[in-house]
Design a protein around this nucleic acid. Sequence first.
DNA 1: AGGCCATGAAGCC
DNA 2: TGGCTTCCCTGGCC
Length: 558
Amino acid sequence: MPSQSRRASFPKVVIERDADSEESSSEEEVEDDDVQTEEEEEEVAEEPENVVKVEVVSGSKKRERAPITISLKKVCKVCKKTGHEAGFKGATYIDCPMKPCFLCKMPGHTTMTCPHRVATEYGVIPAPHKSTYNSLNYIFARQLRPNIPRIKPAFVIPDQVNCAVIRYHSRRVTCLEFHPTNNNILLSGDKKGQLGVWDFGKVYEKTVYGNVHGCILNNMKFNPTNDGAIYSASSDGTISCTDLETGISLSLMNLNPDGWQGPSSWRMLYGLAINTEKSLVLVADNFGYLYVVDVRSNNKLGDSILIHKKGSKVVGLQCNPVQPDLLLSCGNDHFARIWDMRRLEAGSSLYNLSHKRVVNSAYFSPHSGSKILTTSQDNRLRVWDSIFGELDSPSREIVHSHDFNRHLTPFRAEWDPKDPSESLVVIGRYISENYNGAALHPIDFIDISTGQLVAEVMDSNITTISPVNKLHPREDVLATGSSRSLFIWKPKENFEIEQPRDEKKIILCGKAEKKLKKKLEGDSDDDFDDDAFSSKGKKPKTKKPYSKSILCKSKSKC
DNA sequence: AGGCCATGAAGCC
DNA sequence: TGGCTTCCCTGGCC
């Protein structure tokens, strides 16, 4: 932001006094810049809530004087100090300059001027071969490189909403999974423990199974030997195996057989992984322990093993796609850890990948299994280029806004399983951007080999944050879970061949559905699409995206 | 429209 | 270690 406009947003203190009052008191610590000029007096009149009346007593003379009115026009909501203001200005959020940068967490600047915001790859450590430049590299670069085609294929970005189910779940979506063989089936878990099965090819074929878990469905994975069943781990302390046709669940393990005995004993399951070679389901809890279940016998194998700091949540588990005995875990003790499943015991991890904050997710790359990608609450994606190489520090750290944990499902950067170069990942963005007057939260596609932002996708009608994203294993399709709704994105070119843009397939659920039905009964001219997308029906009646005034009304906190 | 609340980590003592 | 406060660009409901 130019310094001019930033200065203009700074607050002003006004001192008003009666005409007969004498010279100003020296006790008032008001900078010249902050004294309101006459032209701005009208503005003050509009904001009477900020007016503070102060009795000024000069020296020992306790003379009756008219009260001096000080208008504290702007008080920062973040640091509670005057002299500046933080919050929305239209669709743009202004940071508190007294706090470290909201994006990169470094002091001295705000998000607006953060170098990571200007260039997403700022500060990314270059690949090692670039820093060891020798004559051979020189010859290669000059003579050979121009003849070598780009190894990386062009990324295909699903950037248009193709279909959606609005308010499908009764609570926010926590995880998504594509069916391993049926290209059009998307599974979704929610905070209530329910499981959604949606055929987005047929659009209207959708079910939500309500009795899968008692509370948050944290993670799920398909049964590798039966793609009609899915395993899920929940904060109710159970692992369920649910039949997708009937919705009937079988409980594999229950960590709270005696029910609620207080928070200190209630165990919740977060991470879930499957070792296909050994037919094992692995889960981890909120106290740092790992449990192994043999799915052939449904028996728990051995004792639970402490794999993270005692008492800390283990939020992610994954078996290496090439070498299933390699296990990757991550959790709230700020570590991602690599284990050899053949000798699993407390403290026996092969490597500990340290982070500055909680680690939301850690994944091996989908094909070679040799890279590791983590998402941490310190607003950084970390990449380790090879698990066979140096693991003491990550190969790359990419600053990206995703540090919101409370109230939202944690953000997790997900690999594109179709990318042979294992460099494209998708992750939702927390911080909003101003898109033609609308504050939207895009979904980012990042090339983790360079840190560059390949694409940011958004729809003017999706105003909620989209922390849950999954790329299709075979098709150019992105699935998004945003609040209680699901969205399917496809590339624009495919989309236009398939159907015209105004024939989006949108389904409404719950109250929104009832509201629409009522509306349609009363007024058949109502535009379906407009209301279908809008969660609160606050959209303007025009076909255009949000007008600034509408957005300011609903979003601005000025 | 405004208030409330679910909810969780970090930091302090 | 444990209890308390703070954080303060959420989303949904009443």
